[in-house]
Design a protein around this nucleic acid. Structure first.
Lengths: 180, 180
DNA sequence: GCTCGAGTTCTGTTTCAACAGAAGTTTCGG
DNA sequence: CCGAAACTTCTGTTGAAACAGAACTCGAGC
C-alpha cells in the first residue's frame, strides 16, 4: 500500500508513541496501518509498506491478535491471510483496558490479598505498614469494581455519560432531587 | 530500613509490575518503599535497603519528584535530604493520569489536529482514510475533555461516583425522572 | 581555605527486547 | 507425492535503557 504523507505521519507517530504506551514500534505501526486501511491487507503488504522484516510482521500480528485488536480474514480465491483492525474506537478502548487490567492489575490484586492474609499472623510488620497495604488493596479493588460495572454498560450509555462530563456530579447524594 | 517478608514481597512485586506499567524497576521499587515507610527516609537508606547503587537511587528519586509523586523534606539537625511519597491514593492516581495524559495523549492530539489541517488541501489521501483520522481525533478529544472535567471534581464526589459504579447509568437520558 | 559529608553527573558495562534473515513447517494445487 | 507459496519459529545481531562505580560538585563547619 502506498502511504501518503499524512498517513506516513500518522503511522510514524503511532510507532513512536507506542514506546511510551508500552507497545513496541513495529506493533504500534502495524496497528496504525491496519486502522487506516480501508480493506484487510496481507502480512506481505504490511512488511513492504512499513519496511519491516516479514518475520517481524508475523510476530507482531500474532501479538495484535492476542490483544484482540486485529482479526484474520480471508478473501475468496486467495490463500493468503488478510488482516483487519477493529474499527469501533469504543470497543478498541474497552478491549485494551480489559487486557491491561488482566495483565497489570489482577496480579497485583492477588499479591496484595496474599500480603493481607499473611499479615494477620505476622508480628514483625508494624501495623502502620499493614494498613498502608490494606489501603492500597481497597483502593485498587474499588477502581477495579467500578471498571467492571461501567464496562458492561451499553455503548450508547457510555457515550452519553462521557458527554455529560463533570455534570454527572449533580446526581451524587441528591438522587431524589436531581438538578433541573 | 529492615524489610519484613511482607514488605519485601510488596516491593519486589511493585518492581516487576513497574516494567509492565512502563516504569523501570528501581523507580518502582523505590516508590513502593517510600509508600510503605512510616517516615521520610534518606537516599542512602533507600540504597542500602534495596541494594541499589547510590547513583541509581539519586536518579530515580529525581524522576519520582518529576512525576510529583515524591517530595523532599528535611529533618531538624540533619543535613541530608529525606524523601516521602504521596500517601493519598486518589491524589496519586490523578497525578499519574495527569502526567501520562500530558506526555502520552496531548502530543497525539497535536499530531492528529495537524493531520486534519493538512488533509483539507491534500488530494492524495482518500476521503475514507481522512475520516478515520478524524474519528480518532474526535474520540481522543472526547476522552480527554471528560477526564479534564472529572478530574476537577472534589475528591469526595469522585469517590461517591465510583461507589455508584454502573448505577450512574440510571440518570442518562432521564434527567427529569430519575429512578427511585 | 580545607575537609568531609551529601548529592549529582559521567562513563563504561550489562541486560534485555526488538528485529532481520535463515531455516523450518504447513498447506494447497497439480 | 512434489513443488511452491504462505506463514512461523529459530538464531544471531543490534540498539537502547538500566545500572554500578568513579569522578566530580557543592556547601557547611571548623
Amino acid at each position: 500500500m502506498r502511504l501518503t504523507p499524512i498517513m506516513e505521519r500518522y503511522v510514524l507517530h503511532w510507532g513512536e508513541m507506542g514506546q511510551r504506551w508500552g507497545v513496541n514500534r513495529s506493533v504500534a505501526q502495524i496497528h496504525a496501518l491496519l486502522y487506516l486501511s480501508p480493506r484487510p491487507i496481507t502480512a506481505e503488504e504490511v512488511a513492504e509498506t512499513l519496511g519491516l522484516a516479514r518475520s517481524n510482521v508475523s510476530t507482531s500480528l500474532k501479538e495484535l491478535q492476542g490483544w484482540q485488536l486485529v482479526t484474520l480474514t480471508h478473501v475468496l480465491g486467495d490463500r493468503r491471510d488478510h488482516f483487519e483492525s477493529k474499527k469501533d474506537l469504543w470497543e478498541l478502548l474497552l478491549t485494551i483496558v480489559e487486557e491491561r487490567k488482566r495483565r497489570e492489575i489482577d496480579p497485583t490484586l492477588t499479591m496484595l490479598r496474599q500480603c493481607m492474609l499473611e499479615a494477620e499472623e505476622d508480628k514483625e510488620t508494624p501495623a502502620e505498614i499493614k494498613e498502608r497495604i490494606g489501603k492500597m488493596l481497597g483502593f485498587i479493588e474499588t477502581l477495579s469494581d467500578w471498571y467492571v460495572q461501567v464496562s458492561r454498560l451499553p455503548k450508547s450509555t457510555l457515550v452519553a455519560l462521557m458527554k455529560m462530563g463533570g455534570k454527572v456530579a449533580r446526581f451524587v447524594g441528591r438522587r431524589h432531587r436531581p438538578a433541573a
